[in-house]
């Protein structure tokens, strides 16, 4: 094979862009806070695909992209934990988690 595959870096980056756009659409439009969180996870995964693809095709020996992707996964797990706790707290005080109703911090 030796790098002669028909699938190159641009294919992976295109896939990453499409997945990121889908996640962005979800973040912008969904009303439920947990659905917004799921869309955020999609965007994290798009970034991870791009990083691992760069790591595979541009710096195959240094593995920098894979290392950053690993840290991103850890940070995403921490983010999901705290965000779920906040969602549960909002559900207890507002009896609902639709983000277009929770606007008491808006000026």
């Amino acid at each position: 094979m030796a790098g002669q595959t028909a699938i190159g870096l641009n294919h992976y980056l295109m896939l990453s862009g499409i997945l990121f756009t889908i996640g962005m659409f979800g973040v912008l439009t969904r009303r439920n806070a947990i659905a917004v969180l799921m869309s955020t996870e999609l965007m994290f995964n798009a970034a991870n695909i791009a990083l691992v693809a760069f790591s595979r095709f541009v710096t195959p020996a240094a593995l920098t992209g894979q290392m950053i992707a690993m840290f991103i996964i850890v940070v995403a797990a921490a983010e999901a934990t705290v965000a779920l706790a906040i969602v549960l707290l909002i559900y207890r005080s507002f009896k609902g988690i639709n983000v277009d109703r929770i606007n008491f911090m808006k000026w």
Binding site: I34, N45, N48, V74, A76, V87, Y91
Partner: peptide, 30 residues
């Protein structure tokens, strides 16, 4: 992409932990 360790971590953390957390959140709030 030959990132075997990352694939394992993805399955363990995302599918095993984060997605389960999401499903718990769905069950508890909606």
């Amino acid at each position: 992409l030959n990132a075997y360790l990352l694939a394992a971590i993805q399955v363990l953390i995302y599918v095993g932990a984060v997605a389960m957390l999401m499903i718990f959140g769905v069950m508890l709030t909606t």
